[in-house]
Amino acid sequence: MRLIDADVLKPKILEYVKALERIKYCYGYDTFGKYYNGKKSAYLNVANLIDEAPTVEERKHGHWIEHPKHPIGDCSVCGERVPIYSGSKKYKSCPYCGAKMEGVNDG
Rank of each mutant, 00 (worst) to 15 (best):
residue 50 I to Q: 04
residue 91 Y to W: 14
residue 32 F to D: 05
residue 84 I to N: 15
residue 70 H to Q: 15
residue 91 Y to C: 14
residue 61 H to G: 13
residue 29 Y to C: 02
residue 66 E to A: 10
residue 69 K to W: 13
residue 99 A to D: 09
residue 42 A to D: 07
residue 40 K to T: 09
residue 4 I to H: 03
residue 70 H to L: 14
residue 102 E to G: 11
residue 45 N to S: 05
residue 78 C to S: 08
residue 50 I to N: 09
residue 93 S to P: 11
residue 94 C to T: 07
residue 28 G to K: 05
residue 62 G to N: 12
residue 17 V to F: 02
residue 10 K to L: 01
residue 81 R to Q: 15
residue 97 C to K: 12
residue 68 P to W: 15
residue 20 L to W: 00
residue 102 E to Q: 13
residue 82 V to E: 07
residue 105 N to A: 13
residue 13 I to K: 03
residue 28 G to V: 00
residue 18 K to V: 04
residue 90 K to I: 11
residue 58 E to Y: 04
residue 86 S to F: 08
residue 68 P to E: 14
residue 21 E to L: 01
residue 3 L to S: 05
residue 75 C to M: 14
residue 52 E to C: 06
residue 104 V to L: 15
residue 6 A to S: 12
residue 65 I to H: 06
residue 73 G to P: 09
residue 91 Y to T: 11
residue 59 R to P: 03
residue 2 R to W: 03
residue 45 N to E: 07
residue 21 E to R: 10
residue 89 K to W: 06
residue 99 A to N: 07
residue 52 E to P: 00
residue 67 H to E: 15
residue 24 K to V: 02
residue 73 G to M: 05
residue 94 C to N: 06
residue 40 K to A: 07
residue 27 Y to Q: 07
residue 73 G to R: 11
residue 67 H to I: 15
residue 105 N to D: 08
residue 103 G to W: 06
residue 55 T to A: 00
residue 26 C to T: 10
residue 47 A to Y: 01
residue 13 I to S: 04
residue 6 A to T: 03
residue 30 D to F: 10
residue 22 R to A: 02
residue 11 P to G: 01
residue 93 S to H: 11
residue 41 S to D: 01
residue 64 W to G: 01
residue 43 Y to K: 12
residue 37 N to W: 04
residue 24 K to L: 01
residue 43 Y to Q: 12
residue 101 M to Q: 14
residue 79 G to V: 03
residue 95 P to D: 15
residue 82 V to W: 06
residue 57 E to R: 14
residue 89 K to M: 07
residue 78 C to Q: 02
residue 58 E to Q: 09
residue 25 Y to R: 08
residue 48 N to I: 06
residue 33 G to A: 03
residue 66 E to F: 03
residue 57 E to I: 08
residue 101 M to Y: 08
residue 98 G to T: 09
residue 30 D to W: 06
residue 47 A to V: 02
residue 73 G to T: 03
residue 27 Y to R: 05
residue 103 G to A: 07
residue 41 S to Y: 11
residue 11 P to L: 07
residue 17 V to M: 00
residue 29 Y to P: 00
residue 54 P to S: 07
residue 51 D to H: 03
residue 17 V to S: 01
residue 55 T to W: 01
residue 97 C to S: 03
